Simulated scan of single mutants.
Amino acid sequence: MSVVLGTRLMDVSRKVFGQKAFDQMMKMTFYGQFVAGENHQTIKPLIQRNQAFGVGSVLDYSVEEDLTQEEAEKKEME
């Protein structure tokens, strides 16, 4: 239920604010909370700032894909 609500909220936000403003809001809030950047150039300042405080980084590459229920079940069984 919450995924459906979240998807609807995102769709409405895109329509109300436009894609560019929506993208910026996502980077400043939800996306920005969990993602350091979009490429190696954009993550460097954060990594350097964290290193100054003795905090290391763990980098992870994340990819999402929309699948139908049938496709998901098939991939799960592979």
Rank of each mutant, 00 (worst) to 15 (best):
G37C: 01
Q33H: 10
T68Q: 06
Y61N: 09
E76D: 12
R49T: 10
K20R: 14
M25N: 09
F34I: 10
E78Y: 07
G37E: 04
F30E: 14
L46G: 04
V16S: 05
V58S: 05
S13L: 13
L5H: 08
L5S: 13
M1G: 13
Q51A: 07
G37T: 04
D66A: 14
T29D: 05
Q19W: 12
F30D: 09
A52T: 12
R8E: 09
L5Q: 08
V58W: 00
D60Q: 15
E64N: 12
S57L: 02
F17G: 04
T42I: 02
E65R: 14
G32R: 01
T29M: 02
F30Q: 14
L9K: 02
E71K: 11
N50D: 09
S2K: 15
V35Q: 05
G37I: 01
F22H: 05
E70D: 11
F30C: 05
G6Q: 08
D11L: 15
E65S: 09
G54W: 00
R14A: 08
L46T: 15
H40R: 09
V3Y: 11
K27D: 01
D60W: 03
A52N: 06
G6M: 03
F17E: 09
V58H: 02
M77K: 15
G56W: 00
K75F: 01
M10T: 10
K44P: 02
M1A: 10
F53S: 14
L9I: 07
H40F: 03
L5R: 10
R8V: 15
D11V: 12
M28W: 12
S62Y: 02
F22P: 07
K74F: 04
G56C: 05
G32P: 10
F17V: 14
D11N: 13
Q51N: 15
S57M: 04
L46P: 08
G56N: 10
F22V: 06
S62V: 10
Q48Y: 03
I43R: 02
Q24M: 00
H40W: 04
F53Q: 08
K15R: 12
S62T: 13
Y31C: 07
T68R: 03
S2W: 06
Q19Y: 09
E70T: 09
Q48I: 02
R8M: 05
M77D: 15
G37N: 02
E78I: 09
Q48T: 14
V55P: 03
V35E: 01
T68P: 07
G56P: 06
K27C: 01
D60Y: 04
E73G: 07
T42R: 00
E73A: 15
K15L: 03
E78K: 12
G56L: 00
T42H: 01
Q24N: 06
F17C: 07
A21S: 13
T29K: 02
S57V: 06
V55T: 10
T68H: 04
M28T: 09
E71M: 07
G56E: 06
A21F: 03
V16R: 14
Q24H: 06
E71R: 11
L46C: 05
L46K: 11
S2A: 11
V16P: 11
T42F: 00
